[in-house]
Amino acid sequence: MMLPNAVPVSWYLILSAILFSMGVAGFLIRRNIITVFMCIELMLNAVNLSFVAFSYELKKIDGQLFTFFVMVVAAAEAAVGLAIILTVFRHRMSLEIDDVSSLKN
């Protein structure tokens, strides 16, 4: 098998798309709230990778700064989301998303 001589930036973008799709798949098929939340983090990480790849392609660091903002939003989201999960668990003693369906119907 011959390895190519260089890796184009588009491969990084495709890796980012693969990781994002895996995050969406996990979001669809998992039923533990915490795992669903981790799948959201996986999607955010995939988007960060494509920001950094475009930053390399354009030779500008604006994309990296957007990644910083995504990280800050992810941190804030994790804090609030995990607090919500704690509250839900305290009231329902369950972490299954199928048990938390009061807003349905």
Partner: peptide, 20 residues
């Protein structure tokens, strides 16, 4: 679409971009 619209993106070399 990534491969079609961005056919010749620059190749990644460690150390080619050091503004980070």
């Amino acid at each position: 679409f990534i491969l079609k619209e961005l056919p010749n993106t620059s190749s990644v070399q460690f150390g080619a971009f050091t503004q980070g």
